[in-house]
Design a protein around this nucleic acid. Structure first.
Lengths: 110, 110
DNA sequence: ATAATCAATCGTAATATTGCAATATACAAT
DNA sequence: ATTGTATATTGCAATATTACGATTGATTAT
């Protein structure tokens, strides 16, 4: 079918999967790193730096924005994007919880 | 094109993106949670519990295995999967590094 | 008003993912 | 050898993603 059977998984599982999916692209990782490091961001900068077309970067920004990881505000003729602190906190804690389930090496699978 | 331009990003960015992509599906998250909680795992259990066809689960397991997040050993007629501690450590630290780039709320994007 | 600049959207092509039925493979027990 | 059980692989249909040129919309400067 090609459609994820979201209904058979928990809200938390689906939410985490969606957040991770939004992060799971090198361009979006690079974009986020750039935003975090500069502590502010204008799309135009990225176009020059990343080596992707303007339309492509705009699309990646849209994806990050639609899931709430970043938010943008119009700043004159350009747009200023930055991390959304609330979603970031959710991401951090959800990931922490998920990773914490691992209790270390087991006896099986030697 | 549909093909990620992996060559224009760093090895680290690509590696993290690939790891996250492997995690970015509710079924694979559920599978990993199940493996972590039971501290051992047999594929058959998952088929009964997850509500997905056996072929589908086997495929998700293959994906997790191919990127190194889990490893499996044959145990009689069934296969025992568990977390690969080395990859898990890499995942944890890479994610930590990535998330740590965020320095908290900024003045922009009010 | 016009031109220049920046970002969003549209349309489209190439490719990837998801899910499953059907089939194949591997092993254990009889 | 045959049967049963467990997992893997194949083939395919439906859908999603990635990338970009072309265009549009919005804002600033002239």
């Amino acid at each position: 079918m090609g459609l994820t059977k979201a209904d058979i998984f928990s809200k938390e599982q689906n939410r985490l999967a969606m957040l991770l999916k939004a992060l799971a692209h090198p361009a979006r990782i690079a974009i986020l790193q750039r935003i975090m490091i500069s502590n502010t961001c204008i799309c135009g900068d990225l176009v020059g730096e990343l080596g992707l077309a303007q339309a492509t970067i705009s699309q990646h920004l849209k994806e990050l924005k639609s899931i709430g990881i970043i938010k943008g505000s119009i700043e004159g003729t350009s747009v200023c994007y930055c991390i959304d602190p609330d979603t970031w906190k959710v991401l951090e804690s959800t990931l922490q919880d998920f990773l914490a389930n691992y209790k270390g090496e087991t006896i099986c699978c030697q």
